[in-house]
Structures are given as C-alpha cells and as structure tokens.
Nucleic acid binder design. Sequence first.
DNA 1: GTCTACCTATAGGCACTCTACATGTAGAGA
DNA 2: TCTCTACATGTAGAGTGCCTATAGGTAGAC
Lengths: 111, 111
Amino acid sequence: MGVNTDALRGHMDALLLSVLEHEPLHGYAIIEALQARSGGALSVPTGTVYPALRRLEQAGYLAGEWATVGGRKRRTYRLTAAGRTALAGERSAWREFAGVIGSVLEPRATK
Amino acid sequence: MGVNTDALRGHMDALLLSVLEHEPLHGYAIIEALQARSGGALSVPTGTVYPALRRLEQAGYLAGEWATVGGRKRRTYRLTAAGRTALAGERSAWREFAGVIGSVLEPRATK
DNA sequence: GTCTACCTATAGGCACTCTACATGTAGAGA
DNA sequence: TCTCTACATGTAGAGTGCCTATAGGTAGAC
C-alpha cells in the first residue's frame, strides 16, 4: 500500500492543480487533501510540495496569498485562469499517458 | 500526439519487461515493439533503452546474449524467472498508481 | 514544560531520462 | 563507386524534479 512517489515525476503538477480546482488551499491542507482523495495511498512530503507550489506560482498557474489563522501563518494558493487551462491540459495528457502505458503493459488479447 | 517520455520515469522498467514477456528481442526491436504496441505514441530514444536494458540485466531481470544476424551484431534479451516476478509486480504497481492518480484527478462526483 | 499537531521552507543528493555524439554493417539506387 | 537509408549498439554529459534531512516557529493539550 502506498504509491512509490518517485513515479509521480511529471504528474505532480496535475495533482496539485486538481486539488485546488474547487477551493483554494494552503500547502499543509493540500497534502492532506491528496492523501484523502487517494484513500491514504499518497503521502507527498513537504519537501516536494512547497517547492512545487512555488514553481507553479511562478509559472502563473497559481496565485498565493499569506493569511494568519489562529496565530499561524499560511500561504493559501488558488488556481488562476491559466491554471485552469493547464489543468485541462494535464488531465488529457494523463488520459493519453495512462492509455499508452496500459496498452503496452496489458495489450488486448486480439494481438 | 505522442507521450512526453519524460513522464515515463519510473515506468520504463515495466514497459521493457512487458514487451519481452512472450519473446526475446534485441534493443532495436524493443524500441519498434514499444512503438507498435502504443499505436505510434511511444518513441523511446536509444540513449534511454540501451542503458535501461543493461540495468535490468544487472538486476537479474533480463539475460542478454550476443548473436550475429546478417552480418550485424545483436544483443538479444530474454526475461529471467526473476524478471517475470518483477513484471507481475510492475503490473500491479501500475494498476495501483493509475487508480490513485485517477482518483485524485477525476474524483467521483459523489463527493 | 513537554509533546503533538499545525505550518512553511531550504539544501543537497540522486535516479533516470534526455540530447548529442560515436561507430559500424548491409543493401538499394544513381 | 558513392551515397543514402535502415539496421544496430553504445557512451558522455546535462537536466529535471522528486527525495531525505534539517530547520524554524505557533497553539493547545496533558
């Protein structure tokens, strides 16, 4: 149980954008959301998430904003318009990717 | 059209083992087989395949043997018993991986 | 006063794929 | 004969991006 997160290389952006689709979240909450949505299989370390969020922000896909809640500082991210477009692209890229790998790994018996 | 092969990171072993499941092949033929099985979407460069084959051989999953066909030298690889076990593991790992990513990217509307 | 949960962040390492290059045979066609 | 394409293997060096480990800090419970 638990996905080898090294295999996530190249798909992390899709996951992060996806989890922010319907509501802005801060980094810590994003990690929890990923874990919840995956049924506990995804434990993405903070050292992966925080740099990735900054990268996506610099790319213009996310907008971050500092907030203080209960004395704790949070950086909350929301999807930009460009981020929504990117998410759509990531989704279709994932579908193609999964189809291709699947067709190689488990080819139809029709040979 | 055509998968970004950089996203293959971590899945290449599965692809190579899978394509060798039913018949031994040499490197060049493996590349062609991958392309054929994927409907042309996968163009894996030689600089990726040859080192990967050696890595898998060293890991004990493949056994390589030199042959000369029509004056050309080929190194033909076949799956070992350990390779078959590894392939089974790669397959189930892929299914879990695809399921997890899918569940995050396109969660059921039941919320 | 210590422990756990909450929260963000950087440094350095490392695995794996990429691009580009290097080398060579065989056969078709001009 | 020369050249081009397909066949065939391989290395060097770069780059990406995820990892582990470490760091720092607040709030609340016990």
